[in-house]
Design a protein around this nucleic acid. Structure first.
Length: 550
RNA sequence: GGGCGAUUAGCUCAGUUGGAUAGAGCGUUAGCCUCCGGAGCUAAAGGCCGUGCGUUCGAGUCGCACAUCGCCCA
């Protein structure tokens, strides 16, 4: 509707100033819903923005625009100039009927956009396979997966990817940690280093090997220490990654590609990437090390790619990884990272540019910290001691729907308090249930009504609550597209909560099923069905179920 | 020391191309079950949008400085 109104305004302006129309900047025209209902359903600032270039007073221009606007469909009930030069529009019943019918016709495709050819990769979680996923990863998983769903719904072709850091020093430390625990379990006196992985799961992994010696290679205990560590590192990494895959699958976080860092080395892609940088003049050698000249490209300083001892840095692999992404033809690459990586963004953007791509093609979404609460009190967590709450534990306690919804209620750029008791609550405290309840309630209503099929007469929907509901539903496509463009799924979560509130209010004030008025009942249930349809569609984009019964 | 982000109701937070009188939930207070699912609804109270200066018809929104908090880097 906003779009339609905007078009009408623009063509009116062209009639008013046929000569100067080319000069007019329509970009600053805003069509929006006023906060104050007294100002109508929609309002525009067009007259104020364009008064000066047209040499008119805003109020006069507003009146002229109104006079020249096309209203052949009868969608506009009234239009009036107000305040300093706003134009306030009231929409007619014809419009509400039209909008509701569109939702009913498109069904669960309402708001879906035709594929537009843009190819997007969303990389998310990408936790090191050195330990189980914790709550923070859960937030990243919910966000990344939801972004992918929204982007696909709005016409992008999306590939979801997990980057496995299986080549760095931390994998060796993992193998070492398991070896020490293994020796410990065999009765040897050991001294477990403080910078190794302390978690209970390491002991469990070692215990498993001891109980099932067949897992180990026959000659394992004859191998050198270094060979043992290598074997254990690979074995443990695989086991942990399997656990991560399970957790994510149960969390309904879909991933298409599991990309191994090691494979970059195996396929010589790191050297190729460095060669590409060197060709572009972005590399120099100093003090026996190889440097990336990232500072001229916006980084704080230049960065080492190959240390003087010959080791390639994490950044070197990451440059190769991102080069590989773009060589697959993605127009946009979205990286979902933990907030502690923010210092890493400038060098990555520099790398993208140095590789010959536009830095706008890389969108880094930083996910802020999650604080886990129980009854308002923080649950103690410390990675160092290995005492952290895993994603699995949270899922077992509150369920997938609640966890996902909670993770997506807030903007990703603000820290999140996740209260386990709230997530488990089955009342208004818990936004998940509040929204899901709408679906269950409407389903039960429709079951109960038992109306014979027939075309509802939507013109009977004359209550203000009904207009509010339809108007909100009609805003769904805009909301989803905006969430996609801004990479902010919480806009959709907020939309759903508002939709639920509007419906519960409507339900509280009016009877939907009036035995003596079957026509009215039919119309109201048609509206209710549309509410359920769009709500379910929105929940589905969050990866949350829309139950028929609760 | 440098950089990034934050600061909006008692609490948790929305508020984006700058728009009219600032939004929601929780919490508090007072109400609603002979009635479609009360997992709900109705209403009240609650604000110097961290501070100051600037940009303009108009600032929670944009710019500069300061304060406080958090994170990253040396």
């Amino acid at each position: 509707m906003k779009k339609m109104l905007r078009n009408k305004i623009e063509s009116a302006l062209k009639k008013i100033a046929p000569a100067g129309a080319g000069q007019l900047n329509f970009k600053n025209i805003v069509v929006e819903e006023p906060k104050d209902p007294a100002h109508g359903h929609l309002a525009t600032n067009a007259a104020m923005v364009l008064a000066k270039p047209l040499g008119l007073k805003p109020r006069d221009l507003a009146c002229k625009i109104i006079g020249f606007m096309d209203n052949s469909e009868g969608f506009i009930q009234s239009a009036e100039a107000a305040g300093p030069g706003f134009i306030n529009f009231r929409l007619s019943l014809e419009w509400w009927t039209y909008a509701l019918n569109e939702i009913r016709n498109k069904g669960s495709d309402y708001g879906r956009l035709e594929p537009g050819g843009q190819k997007v990769q969303v990389e998310y979680v990408s936790a090191n396979p050195t330990g189980p996923l914790h709550v923070g990863h859960g937030r990243g998983a919910a966000l990344g997966d939801c972004l992918a769903r929204i982007l696909a719904f709005t016409g992008r072709t999306v590939v979801r990817e997990y980057y496995i850091n299986d080549a760095g020093r931390q994998m060796r430390v993992l193998g070492q940690s398991v070896l020490i625990r293994l020796n410990e379990l065999k009765g040897e006196e050991t001294n477990f280093p403080g910078d190794h992985y302390q978690g209970r799961y390491i002991i469990d992994l070692a215990g498993e090997l001891l109980n099932h010696p067949g897992e180990l290679p026959a000659n394992f205990w004859d191998l050198s220490k270094e060979e043992k560590i290598q074997w254990l590192s690979r074995w443990a990494g695989r086991r942990i990654l399997d656990g991560i895959k399970n957790d994510l699958a149960d969390f309904r976080a879909i991933l298409d590609v599991w990309f191994s860092e090691q494979s970059l080395y195996d396929q010589n892609l790191v050297d190729e990437a460095l060669a590409s940088l060197r060709r572009g003049g972005h590399i120099y050698d100093q003090d026996g090390a190889v440097w990336f000249r990232s500072e001229p490209l916006g980084d704080d300083k230049n960065r080492v790619l190959i240390k003087s001892n010959g080791d390639k840095t994490y950044l070197a692999a990451d440059v190769a990884y991102h080069r590989n992404k773009f060589r697959h033809g993605f127009d946009l690459v979205v990286d979902v990272w933990g907030a502690d990586h923010h210092g890493y963004i400038p060098r990555m953007e520099a790398a993208v540019e140095a590789l010959g791509y536009r830095r706008e093609q890389l969108a880094v979404v930083l996910v802020q910290l999650v604080t886990l609460l129980r009854n308002g009190q923080p649950v103690s967590m410390s990675t160092r001691s290995g005492e952290f709450v895993t994603l699995r534990e949270v899922l077992d306690e509150v369920g997938v729907d609640a966890a996902r919804f909670m993770f997506l209620t807030r903007s990703h750029e603000s820290a999140l308090d996740f209260d386990l008791e709230v997530a488990k609550a089955k009342n208004r405290d818990n936004p998940v249930y509040y929204v899901q309840y709408v679906c269950a309630r409407i389903f039960s209503l429709i079951q109960k009504a038992d109306l014979k099929d027939g075309k509802p007469d939507l013109s009977l929907l004359t209550e203000p609550e009904e207009a509010d509901l339809i108007r909100h539903l009609a805003g769904f496509p805009d909301t989803v597209e905006s969430a996609a463009r801004r990479l902010e799924p919480h806009l959709l979560t907020a939309w759903l909560t508002n939709a639920a509130r509007l419906f519960h209010q409507y339900y509280g004030r009016h009877r939907l099923i009036e035995e003596k008025q079957p026509e009215l009942t039919r119309a109201r249930l048609a509206l209710a069905a549309a509410v359920r349809l769009v709500t379910a569609s929105g929940l589905n984009l969050l990866g949350v179920s829309a139950p028929e019964k609760m």
